[in-house]
Protein backbone atom coordinates (compact mmCIF):
# COMPACT_ATOMS: atom_id res chain seq x y z
CA UNK A 1 0.00 0.00 0.00
CA UNK A 2 2.82 2.37 0.90
CA UNK A 3 4.46 1.97 -2.45
CA UNK A 4 1.16 2.87 -4.12
CA UNK A 5 0.99 6.30 -2.46
CA UNK A 6 3.50 8.08 -4.71
CA UNK A 7 1.63 6.55 -7.64
CA UNK A 8 -1.65 8.03 -6.41
CA UNK A 9 0.00 11.40 -5.89
CA UNK A 10 1.25 11.26 -9.46
CA UNK A 11 -2.22 10.34 -10.75
CA UNK A 12 -3.79 13.24 -8.84
CA UNK A 13 -1.18 15.69 -10.08
CA UNK A 14 -1.67 14.52 -13.65
CA UNK A 15 -5.44 14.97 -13.50
CA UNK A 16 -4.99 18.42 -11.99
CA UNK A 17 -2.54 19.45 -14.69
CA UNK A 18 -4.71 18.12 -17.50
CA UNK A 19 -7.82 19.84 -16.15
CA UNK A 20 -6.15 23.23 -15.75
CA UNK A 21 -4.54 22.96 -19.16
CA UNK A 22 -7.77 21.92 -20.88
CA UNK A 23 -9.76 24.81 -19.42
CA UNK A 24 -7.08 27.34 -20.33
CA UNK A 25 -6.75 25.86 -23.81
CA UNK A 26 -10.47 26.21 -24.47
CA UNK A 27 -10.23 29.86 -23.46
CA UNK A 28 -7.08 30.57 -25.48
CA UNK A 29 -7.75 28.19 -28.34
CA UNK A 30 -11.30 29.23 -29.25
CA UNK A 31 -10.46 32.74 -30.49
CA UNK A 32 -7.45 31.36 -32.37
CA UNK A 33 -9.63 28.68 -33.99
CA UNK A 34 -12.31 31.25 -34.87
CA UNK A 35 -9.76 33.57 -36.40
CA UNK A 36 -8.10 30.75 -38.37
CA UNK A 37 -11.47 29.54 -39.61
CA UNK A 38 -12.74 32.96 -40.73
CA UNK A 39 -9.78 35.10 -41.70
CA UNK A 40 -8.57 35.92 -45.18
CA UNK A 41 -5.39 37.41 -43.79
CA UNK A 42 -2.11 36.35 -45.43
CA UNK A 43 -0.88 35.53 -41.92
CA UNK A 44 -3.28 32.60 -41.71
CA UNK A 45 -0.71 30.17 -43.03
CA UNK A 46 2.00 31.29 -40.64
CA UNK A 47 -0.23 31.24 -37.55
CA UNK A 48 -1.67 27.86 -38.55
CA UNK A 49 1.85 26.50 -38.91
CA UNK A 50 2.96 27.83 -35.51
CA UNK A 51 -0.09 26.23 -33.87
CA UNK A 52 0.61 22.90 -35.58
CA UNK A 53 4.36 22.93 -34.88
CA UNK A 54 4.22 20.82 -31.68
CA UNK A 55 2.64 17.97 -33.65
CA UNK A 56 5.83 17.61 -35.64
CA UNK A 57 8.58 18.62 -33.21
CA UNK A 58 9.89 15.91 -30.87
CA UNK A 59 8.84 16.75 -27.28
CA UNK A 60 12.44 16.68 -26.13
CA UNK A 61 13.28 19.44 -28.60
CA UNK A 62 10.37 21.57 -27.39
CA UNK A 63 11.28 20.77 -23.78
CA UNK A 64 14.91 21.64 -24.28
CA UNK A 65 14.12 25.03 -25.79
CA UNK A 66 11.49 25.74 -23.15
CA UNK A 67 14.06 24.93 -20.47
CA UNK A 68 16.48 27.41 -22.00
CA UNK A 69 13.78 30.04 -22.63
CA UNK A 70 12.40 29.74 -19.10
CA UNK A 71 15.85 29.64 -17.46
CA UNK A 72 17.48 32.72 -15.93
CA UNK A 73 19.19 33.67 -19.22
CA UNK A 74 16.18 33.04 -21.49
CA UNK A 75 13.63 35.66 -22.60
CA UNK A 76 10.73 34.00 -20.73
CA UNK A 77 12.83 33.58 -17.62
CA UNK A 78 13.87 37.24 -17.65
CA UNK A 79 10.25 38.26 -18.10
CA UNK A 80 8.93 36.14 -15.23
CA UNK A 81 11.75 37.24 -12.96
CA UNK A 82 11.20 40.92 -13.70
CA UNK A 83 7.51 40.43 -12.92
CA UNK A 84 8.50 38.96 -9.59
CA UNK A 85 7.11 35.53 -10.48
CA UNK A 86 10.42 33.71 -10.18
CA UNK A 87 11.55 31.08 -12.62
CA UNK A 88 9.19 28.60 -14.25
CA UNK A 89 11.26 25.43 -14.65
CA UNK A 90 10.60 22.83 -11.93
CA UNK A 91 7.23 24.37 -11.02
CA UNK A 92 3.63 23.37 -11.65
CA UNK A 93 3.02 26.68 -13.46
CA UNK A 94 5.94 25.88 -15.73
CA UNK A 95 4.34 22.55 -16.62
CA UNK A 96 1.03 24.27 -17.33
CA UNK A 97 2.63 26.77 -19.72
CA UNK A 98 4.64 24.11 -21.49
CA UNK A 99 1.55 21.92 -21.85
CA UNK A 100 -0.49 24.84 -23.18
CA UNK A 101 1.93 25.20 -26.02
CA UNK A 102 2.32 21.50 -26.61
CA UNK A 103 -1.37 20.57 -26.59
CA UNK A 104 -2.58 23.67 -28.44
CA UNK A 105 -3.05 22.07 -31.88
CA UNK A 106 -5.09 19.23 -30.40
CA UNK A 107 -7.65 21.74 -29.17
CA UNK A 108 -7.47 24.39 -31.88
CA UNK A 109 -7.72 22.14 -34.89
CA UNK A 110 -10.98 20.28 -34.06
CA UNK A 111 -12.64 23.57 -33.09
CA UNK A 112 -11.34 25.28 -36.22
CA UNK A 113 -12.64 22.43 -38.38
CA UNK A 114 -16.03 22.65 -36.70
CA UNK A 115 -16.19 26.42 -37.28
CA UNK A 116 -15.22 25.95 -40.91
CA UNK A 117 -17.87 23.26 -41.37
CA UNK A 118 -20.61 25.69 -40.33
CA UNK A 119 -20.02 27.80 -43.40
CA UNK A 120 -21.10 31.39 -44.00
CA UNK A 121 -24.80 30.82 -44.38
CA UNK A 122 -26.10 30.27 -40.81
CA UNK A 123 -24.02 33.23 -39.66
CA UNK A 124 -25.37 35.48 -42.39
CA UNK A 125 -28.92 34.37 -41.71
CA UNK A 126 -28.46 35.21 -38.04
CA UNK A 127 -27.05 38.61 -38.99
CA UNK A 128 -30.06 39.39 -41.18
CA UNK A 129 -32.19 38.60 -38.12
CA UNK A 130 -30.30 41.43 -36.43
CA UNK A 131 -28.00 39.37 -34.29
CA UNK A 132 -24.78 41.22 -33.51
CA UNK A 133 -21.40 39.53 -34.10
CA UNK A 134 -21.07 38.56 -30.41
CA UNK A 135 -24.58 37.11 -30.42
CA UNK A 136 -23.93 35.25 -33.68
CA UNK A 137 -20.83 33.72 -32.19
CA UNK A 138 -22.44 32.53 -28.96
CA UNK A 139 -25.95 31.66 -30.20
CA UNK A 140 -25.09 30.16 -33.58
CA UNK A 141 -21.42 29.33 -34.08
CA UNK A 142 -20.64 27.80 -30.69
CA UNK A 143 -23.72 25.53 -30.49
CA UNK A 144 -23.18 24.35 -34.05
CA UNK A 145 -19.49 23.71 -33.36
CA UNK A 146 -20.21 21.77 -30.17
CA UNK A 147 -18.78 18.47 -31.45
CA UNK A 148 -15.54 20.29 -32.22
CA UNK A 149 -15.36 21.66 -28.68
CA UNK A 150 -16.00 18.23 -27.19
CA UNK A 151 -13.33 16.61 -29.37
CA UNK A 152 -10.89 19.43 -28.69
CA UNK A 153 -11.39 19.28 -24.93
CA UNK A 154 -11.04 15.51 -24.77
CA UNK A 155 -8.01 15.41 -27.06
CA UNK A 156 -6.35 18.28 -25.19
CA UNK A 157 -6.96 16.57 -21.86
CA UNK A 158 -5.79 13.18 -23.07
CA UNK A 159 -2.73 14.59 -24.77
CA UNK A 160 -1.70 16.42 -21.61
CA UNK A 161 -2.11 13.23 -19.58
CA UNK A 162 0.09 11.39 -22.05
CA UNK A 163 2.76 14.05 -22.25
CA UNK A 164 6.20 12.92 -21.22
CA UNK A 165 9.17 14.41 -23.01
CA UNK A 166 8.55 18.02 -22.08
CA UNK A 167 7.65 17.28 -18.48
CA UNK A 168 10.81 15.26 -18.16
CA UNK A 169 12.90 18.11 -19.54
CA UNK A 170 11.50 21.00 -17.49
CA UNK A 171 9.80 19.29 -14.56
CA UNK A 172 12.71 18.07 -12.49
CA UNK A 173 10.73 15.06 -11.23
CA UNK A 174 9.57 16.63 -7.94
CA UNK A 175 7.00 14.55 -6.04
CA UNK A 176 3.55 16.18 -5.88
CA UNK A 177 4.70 19.15 -7.95
CA UNK A 178 6.02 17.96 -11.27
CA UNK A 179 6.13 14.17 -11.06
CA UNK A 180 3.22 13.20 -13.30
CA UNK A 181 2.13 9.66 -14.13
CA UNK A 182 4.23 9.31 -17.26
CA UNK A 183 7.37 10.32 -15.38
CA UNK A 184 6.54 8.08 -12.42
CA UNK A 185 6.03 5.21 -14.86
CA UNK A 186 9.36 5.92 -16.49
CA UNK A 187 11.02 5.93 -13.06
CA UNK A 188 9.58 2.52 -12.25
CA UNK A 189 10.88 1.09 -15.50
CA UNK A 190 14.31 2.66 -15.00
CA UNK A 191 14.47 1.32 -11.47
CA UNK A 192 13.47 -2.13 -12.78
CA UNK A 193 10.28 -2.04 -10.65
CA UNK A 194 8.37 -3.71 -13.41
CA UNK A 195 5.38 -4.81 -11.28
CA UNK A 196 4.52 -1.24 -10.27
CA UNK A 197 5.20 -0.09 -13.81
CA UNK A 198 2.64 -2.62 -15.06
CA UNK A 199 -0.04 -1.33 -12.69
CA UNK A 200 0.47 2.24 -13.74
CA UNK A 201 0.79 1.44 -17.43
CA UNK A 202 -2.29 -0.77 -17.31
CA UNK A 203 -4.22 1.98 -15.54
CA UNK A 204 -3.21 4.48 -18.18
CA UNK A 205 -4.25 2.14 -20.98
CA UNK A 206 -7.64 1.65 -19.36
CA UNK A 207 -8.05 5.38 -18.80
CA UNK A 208 -7.16 6.24 -22.40
CA UNK A 209 -9.49 3.57 -23.69
CA UNK A 210 -12.39 4.86 -21.59
CA UNK A 211 -11.78 8.46 -22.63
CA UNK A 212 -11.69 7.59 -26.30
CA UNK A 213 -14.76 5.38 -25.97
CA UNK A 214 -16.60 8.29 -24.40
CA UNK A 215 -15.40 10.55 -27.18
CA UNK A 216 -16.74 8.29 -29.88
CA UNK A 217 -19.89 7.12 -28.10
CA UNK A 218 -21.28 10.40 -26.81
CA UNK A 219 -20.08 12.91 -29.32
CA UNK A 220 -23.02 13.42 -31.69
CA UNK A 221 -22.36 13.48 -35.39
CA UNK A 222 -22.16 17.01 -36.75
CA UNK A 223 -25.63 18.20 -37.60
CA UNK A 224 -26.38 18.90 -41.18
CA UNK A 225 -26.52 22.60 -41.81
CA UNK A 226 -26.92 25.00 -44.69
Amino acid sequence: MNSALPDLAAVWLTLKLATVVTILLLIVGTPIAWWLARTRSPLRGVVGAVVALPIILPPTVVGFYLLIAMGPHGPLGRLTESLGLGLLPFTFSGLVIASLFYSLPFVVQPIQNAFEAIGERPLEVAATLRAGPWDVFWSVAVPLARPGFVSGAILGFAHTVGEFGIVLMIGGNIPERTRVVSVQLYDHVEAMEYAQAHWLAGGMMLFSFLVLTMLYAFNPRPRKTG
Binding site: L67, L87, P89, F90, M169
Partner: peptide
Protein backbone atom coordinates in the same frame (compact mmCIF):
# COMPACT_ATOMS: atom_id res chain seq x y z
CA UNK B 1 19.98 15.54 -17.99
CA UNK B 2 21.12 16.71 -14.57
CA UNK B 3 24.09 18.35 -16.25
CA UNK B 4 21.68 20.01 -18.68
CA UNK B 5 19.62 21.48 -15.83
CA UNK B 6 22.71 23.09 -14.36
CA UNK B 7 24.28 24.11 -17.68
CA UNK B 8 21.11 25.96 -18.70
CA UNK B 9 21.10 27.82 -15.40
CA UNK B 10 17.61 26.55 -14.61
CA UNK B 11 19.15 24.93 -11.54
Amino acid sequence: QTHQFVASGAA
